[in-house]
């Protein structure tokens, strides 16, 4: 039995309904452990004080915001190549979540930046890139909403997603060229000497895993909704034909 069998809506519905409670519980567990650990059981930073703790929301949401687009790119390609409806609907389901995460990343960034840099907003490359990413999400969602025919919408948004990805990367480097910013470098990376201290890193990793689980749960939930909406449409269409 191949992996693609799950692309059948019926099979996907059965599997996801079994998996969803587990994912929900796991998300709640990991996220609350990570956040409580981070908020209450880590020391304050010697320069930044307690404000540093916003990192436990800021970094994971930014991580999801970028990777949600990546996931949409993959599912769009799968739709274009293999024509699996679930794939297209998963991309559609992920977009608003990605947009929400982008907004959370920007807002927590502003809240964090105010005491640290003394400003709510700075035309810094990272911030600006995220703003542009938000615009890409908006355009993508708007195109989905504007087109009536489901397959046409799936095709066109997939094309947009692919072209958009190229331009998103291009914008990122253009913005870097445009302004070197005051945002600190990556907080976590696997190959760097100087990361955030382990005391902060462990709860941060927990939070990131929690956010990933949250993302998966939400995407499953929303994809189920989209499939149900399609099913309603198909039923109405059948009624009309009979």
């Amino acid at each position: 039995m191949s992996f693609w069998e799950y692309a059948n809506p019926k099979r996907f519905m059965a599997l996801s309904s079994a998996a969803l409670p587990w994912f929900t519980a796991l998300t709640a567990l990991v996220l609350s452990v990570g956040l409580i650990w981070g908020f209450f059981f880590t020391p304050d930073d010697f320069r930044q004080g307690s404000t540093v703790k916003i990192i436990y929301i800021h970094v994971p949401s930014a991580f999801i915001a970028i990777n949600a687009w990546l996931m949409m790119l993959v599912t769009s390609l799968v739709w274009l190549v293999r024509r699996h409806h679930v794939s297209a609907l998963a991309a559609r389901a992920a977009a608003p979540i990605g947009l929400a995460m982008t907004c959370i990343g920007l807002i927590t960034g502003a809240v964090w930046g105010q005491p640290m840099w003394g400003t709510w907003w700075e035309w810094d490359p990272r911030l600006t890139s995220f703003l542009i990413l938000g615009l890409f999400y908006l355009g993508y969602i708007a195109l989905w909403e504007a087109i009536d025919d489901a397959d046409t919408a799936a095709d066109l948004t997939s094309v947009l997603c692919i072209v958009g990805s190229v331009f998103a990367v291009l914008s990122r480097y253009a913005i870097l060229f445009w302004n070197q910013g005051l945002h600190q470098g990556a907080s976590l990376s696997l190959d760097k000497e100087e990361n955030v201290h382990d005391v902060f890193a462990y709860p941060l990793w927990t939070c990131i895993i929690g956010f990933v689980l949250l993302f998966i749960t939400l995407v499953l939930l929303r994809t189920r909704t989209e499939i149900r909406a399609r099913r309603v449409k198909a039923l109405i269409a059948r009624e009309r034909m009979a």
Binding site: L135, L138, A142, I147, V163, F167
Partner: peptide, 23 residues
């Protein structure tokens, strides 16, 4: 194919213009 595509068109195209504008 859209009836009132003008506004949507701007929303789709403007983010794609960013690199060109910057350089």
């Amino acid at each position: 194919g859209l009836k009132r595509g003008g506004l949507l068109l701007s929303l789709l195209v403007l983010p794609l213009y960013v690199p060109t504008l910057i350089f």
